[in-house]
Amino acid sequence: MRKLFPLLLTGVLFFSCSSSDDSNNPDTSPTPEESMYFPDNNTDVWETTSPASLGWNESAVPALLQYLEEKHSKSFMILVNGKIVMENYFDGHSATTPWYWASAGKTLTSTVTGIAQQENYININNKVSDYLGTGWTSANLDKENLITCRHLLTMSSGLDDSLGDDVSPENLQYVADAGTRWAYHNVYVKLQDVVAQATNQTWSGYFNSKLRDPIGMTGVWIDSGDDLSVYWSTTRSMARFGLLALNNGKWKETQIINTTYFNEAVNTSQDINKGYGYLWWLNGKQSYHLPQTQFEFNGSIIPSGANDMYMALGKNDQKIYVIPSKKMVVIRMGNAADGENFALSGFDDNLWQKINAVIE
């Protein structure tokens, strides 16, 4: 849903990692009893393991990579138990090249909102106007005061989602009472303003100190207009966040985001769209809604994906798939696979068919 402007990244430093290949060592094969691996912060070493050591079907790997390349991918990565199993780059992209997360970055906002709550700066059950003041929308005051931070996290603000990306007050107009209507809307970005106001810090400053730096990510928030910003990072930085999510908000021995909040974030958050948590998409539910529609669809969002999978999905097919039952994180960055889309597309299910041919 975001408009991305041309960007000069010269002079901005992005940390990158190169793997330490132990793929010929059969002892690197993860087992249910093996402890989760985390790459060190500020290091260029990330342990690997081979598809063969996991018993995967290596003969299906070329078809997967060919499909990714044909579908305009820039990068692809699979982690199992924290170790890199596959890491591939396409179209001139590399481990050091940043790319945009688009709406996959909503999950960063969700996580930092939870951190601000655990530090007692905010309460997600409080109304947004407690932090931003009244008049942050065009709704009547009684309707505006119905909107809580939780409603922004769950896409149930009741504000009009048909008016485009602009989140200025005149463009945030009432359609329904908060909590009665689910609609994919960029008004969630107001949570960044809530956190900045409550902590008396800049959004990026608080984000960097509480989430980015503690798990060794790098990257920057880039203004894309209409009071919106988009996160840019390397693929491995995206993978670090996926690994944090796989471990319920814990990085090594440090609980970055408390498990209660994180579990709420990756489970159904309201009664309208069963496939949505706190800015995370949820697979394996009995029904779901898609962006730009009020229709309810029966079944799982990605039929070929695991039922316990939760997902950060962004415009033009930026993907983080987290699969706890397989101790797996899958990353895809790139251009749109099949024409512009807002978050979900048929590419997801087709990609998982190709991945399943490898891993099952």
Results as ranks from 00 to 15, higher is better:
residue 5 F to G: 01
residue 11 G to N: 15
residue 12 V to I: 14
residue 18 S to T: 08
residue 20 S to I: 12
residue 22 D to N: 15
residue 28 T to W: 02
residue 28 T to R: 12
residue 29 S to A: 15
residue 32 P to Q: 07
residue 43 T to A: 14
residue 45 V to T: 14
residue 53 S to T: 03
residue 59 S to F: 05
residue 66 Q to F: 07
residue 69 E to I: 00
residue 70 E to C: 01
residue 71 K to S: 11
residue 72 H to R: 13
residue 77 M to N: 11
residue 79 L to R: 00
residue 90 F to Y: 14
residue 95 A to Y: 05
residue 97 T to N: 12
residue 99 W to I: 01
residue 101 W to F: 12
residue 102 A to S: 11
residue 114 G to M: 02
residue 132 L to D: 03
residue 132 L to W: 03
residue 138 S to Y: 05
residue 142 D to V: 00
residue 145 N to V: 00
residue 146 L to Y: 02
residue 156 S to K: 11
residue 160 D to W: 10
residue 164 G to N: 10
residue 168 S to Q: 11
residue 169 P to N: 07
residue 174 Y to T: 04
residue 202 T to G: 15
residue 203 W to P: 06
residue 207 F to Y: 15
residue 209 S to E: 15
residue 215 I to C: 12
residue 216 G to V: 03
residue 216 G to L: 07
residue 217 M to C: 04
residue 221 W to M: 14
residue 222 I to G: 02
residue 231 Y to S: 05
residue 234 T to Q: 02
residue 237 S to K: 00
residue 243 L to R: 02
residue 246 L to Y: 03
residue 249 G to P: 14
residue 255 Q to M: 11
residue 257 I to T: 04
residue 267 N to C: 09
residue 267 N to T: 15
residue 273 N to M: 08
residue 277 G to K: 14
residue 281 W to L: 04
residue 283 N to L: 12
residue 284 G to K: 07
residue 290 L to F: 01
residue 291 P to V: 02
residue 300 S to D: 04
residue 301 I to R: 08
residue 302 I to D: 15
residue 306 A to M: 08
residue 311 M to Q: 13
residue 323 I to T: 12
residue 324 P to K: 01
residue 327 K to H: 14
residue 333 M to E: 13
residue 343 A to E: 11
residue 347 F to C: 01
residue 351 L to M: 09
residue 352 W to S: 03
residue 354 K to M: 10
residue 359 I to V: 15
residue 360 E to F: 14
